[in-house]
Simulated assay, not measured.
Amino acid sequence: MKVAIISVSEKGYDLSLSLKEKLDLDSTIIKTDLYHKNVKKYFPILFYEYDAIIAIMASGILVRSIAPLIESKVTDPAVLNIDDNGNFVISLLSGHLGGANRLTQKVASLIGATPVITTSTDVNKKLGIDVLAKDLYLSIDNTKEILFFNKCILEGKKISLTVNPNRDFSYLFRYLNDNTLETDISVSYSTKVNNNEIVACVDGHELILSERKIVAGMGCRRGKECINIYNALESSVKELNIDISRINELTSAEIKKDEKGMLELSEKLNIPINFVDLEKLELFESNDIQKSEFVKSKFGIYGVCEPSALIMAGFDSKLIYKKTSYSGVTIAIAVSK
């Protein structure tokens, strides 16, 4: 998640500096940029350049600033509102698909504030269908149906999920076991459903939830054992709150194609691994990747795990877990659009 923090007062700016320091330590926060004052100039830019905006200012200023920019719950960024004293963190816009509710909980915990969340499913301890999709990195084919599904969930109606029996959906069952709260959900099997889809039904209405491709990019010192790489990957997906079985593909640079630990990990997890040509890595450009001069001097490329993950996840993919080191192993995770 790329986050912009914007403030208008000096006290608010001081709070933004402190919050940025904390967010920068979080591997799921790809970058955090600060903006101060001049809200009329900045908001039209921030709204389209960032996944989340944290506005430290009066709610009136914030609402008037973003009102002309709001388009859809599918495309609008997460917007959080914090008072100058850091007493409250309010999830204002895109609570579910944009991730504002989860970010609100995280930010409130970091600064010792009270989180304020008002979405109906959350306050009634129900699992919204859009929350399930967001948490598991699934796209929704007909977002207009979200409101109907969540209304049915609030009314206590059973949601039926159907999956293909030939695909390992361990990640779905573990998620439901941990997160169904008071929502009534059943799961059945059908070979008519595509391997990468989950079909949700209620009262004759249907939603198709399709897996977005998640790719784990890896780097390691020569000779790292499978267990070391596995532990690093497991730690990474735990921070993302997804099961390791949700990973669709493993990847690294072609210089690692004979790395025994990586090959064994692919076999152990039954997840395919592909290696990216050095030429592609050398030509790849992204403002979101961390560049290493050491790697550049040794292999002629600025990085391995981040660019590999982004390349294999496809055009317009984005990082959801920045390069993080674990005792000689580096992990980065990207997801397709």
Rank of each mutant, 00 (worst) to 15 (best):
I30P: 01
L250I: 14
F294N: 09
G128S: 14
K337T: 05
G99W: 04
I214L: 00
H36M: 06
L283P: 04
T114G: 01
K224Y: 06
K213Y: 02
L25W: 07
I333F: 01
A200I: 03
T28Q: 04
E293F: 10
V202F: 06
I333G: 00
G112E: 09
L46N: 00
V123Q: 09
D178C: 11
G112K: 09
M218E: 02
P115S: 04
T330L: 03
L147I: 15
I255M: 01
L207D: 03
K151N: 10
I53Q: 11
E21H: 11
G261A: 07
I311M: 11
K318Y: 02
N164P: 12
V276C: 01
V131D: 11
D277W: 00
T162V: 15
K134C: 09
L97W: 03
H36E: 07
D84V: 05
D51N: 14
A58E: 14
L207E: 03
E49A: 11
L147M: 12
E285T: 15
Y302L: 12
K157Q: 07
I244F: 07
R212P: 00
G12Y: 02
R222G: 08
G261C: 10
G300V: 11
P272F: 01
K157L: 04
L46R: 01
E293A: 05
C305D: 10
M1A: 07
F47L: 13
T143M: 04
L97M: 04
L103P: 05
Q105D: 14
L19N: 15
R221M: 03
D288V: 13
V63R: 13
G99I: 12
S210R: 07
A133I: 02
Y302Q: 06
P115I: 03
A309R: 00
S235R: 15
A200L: 07
E155V: 05
Y230L: 14
L19T: 15
R222D: 03
S245H: 08
G314S: 03
K126Q: 07
N241G: 07
I311S: 07
D168F: 10
A216N: 01
L263A: 08
L17R: 14
N231G: 05
L181M: 10
I61A: 13
T32W: 09
K73V: 13
V187N: 12
N270P: 08
Y137T: 00
D178Q: 15
L46T: 01
I229S: 14
F88N: 11
F88G: 04
V3I: 15
C305M: 10
D316I: 01
I320C: 02
K323L: 06
M1D: 04
E71T: 10
S91C: 10
L240T: 09
E71L: 10
C152R: 14
K144P: 03
L69V: 09
T114Y: 06
K40T: 14
I111V: 11
F294T: 05
L176P: 14
I6F: 12
F43K: 08
